Simulated scan of single mutants.
Amino acid sequence: MNAADALIQAGRALVEAGLSPGSSGNVSIRTGDRVLMSGTGTRLGALEPTDLAELSLDGTHVGGARPSKEVSLHLALYAKNPTHTAVVHVHSPSAVALSCLEPWSEHSAVPPLTPYALMRVGQVPLLDFVPPGDPAMGELITGSRHPFRAALLANHGAVVSGEDAPTAVDSTIELEEACRIALMTLGAPRRLIAADQVAAITQRWNMPWTDDAHQ
């Protein structure tokens, strides 16, 4: 499958999962020194090849549709995770809602409530609010001292990277579920997964997690 087809398929999968209402959200795929990205104002569930923008890794628009204003967000996550080739940004309901609350900890807005989020996402820091499209959003990602493949953008939504497009989509779906469970248990006495088990799971699945004792 070529990059355009993979990106179109990823967009449809996100909409089918209920994570991209209206024309919100964007997705990209990196191939070598080029990034293919959904164009501005497009609906992820109805993408066509003419809706895709081609960019260089410095953000220069080299062809196709007009790119989303969130270019810096995508490029920063590729820079943070050089082996990843796909980035998803969504305004999914639970992720947005949790991004409007104070984070569970300095290194993760999402508490360790289920093993599945630990296996597929790891820690999810909450990044400070900046207006959508502001290049400062990318600087928050590259400047963070914590490793991560997913983050919540304060009062905005989520961004996730993956080794390929299906992985990034699956991780985004898992993150939305983790945010939903965090919201459902808010204010109740939670039973968190023990720190030693969190470390064992994230190490086994090669997911980022900062030791609570060494934040």
Rank of each mutant, 00 (worst) to 15 (best):
N2R: 11
A3H: 07
I8S: 07
Q9E: 15
Q9R: 14
G11H: 05
V15D: 14
S24F: 04
N26Q: 05
I29L: 13
I29S: 05
G32A: 07
G39A: 11
G41L: 10
L44M: 15
L44N: 01
L44C: 08
G45F: 08
A46R: 07
T50W: 00
L52V: 06
L55C: 02
L57M: 15
D58P: 05
G59S: 10
H61W: 15
G63R: 12
G64A: 04
G64I: 08
G64H: 02
P67L: 06
V71Y: 08
V71G: 01
S72L: 06
L73E: 00
L77T: 03
L77Y: 04
L77M: 13
N81M: 02
T85M: 06
A86C: 13
V88W: 05
S94D: 12
S94R: 03
A97C: 04
S99Q: 08
C100N: 13
S105M: 11
E106K: 11
E106A: 15
H107L: 01
A109K: 03
P111T: 12
P112C: 11
L113N: 01
T114K: 05
Y116R: 08
L118I: 12
R120M: 11
V121L: 06
P125R: 08
L126Q: 07
L127C: 07
P132W: 05
P132A: 14
D134P: 11
D134M: 10
P135T: 13
L140M: 10
R145L: 09
P147G: 02
R149Y: 12
A150F: 11
L152G: 01
N155W: 12
H156D: 10
V159M: 09
V159R: 05
V160H: 04
E163H: 12
E163Y: 09
D164N: 15
D164P: 08
A165K: 03
V169P: 02
S171M: 07
E174P: 07
L175D: 01
E177D: 05
E177R: 14
A178C: 12
I181A: 14
A182R: 02
A182P: 01
T185M: 14
A188R: 11
R190N: 14
R191T: 15
L192A: 11
A194Y: 00
A195W: 05
D196G: 12
Q197I: 13
A199Q: 13
A199V: 12
A200D: 09
Q203F: 05
R204H: 15
W209C: 02
H214Y: 05
Q215N: 13
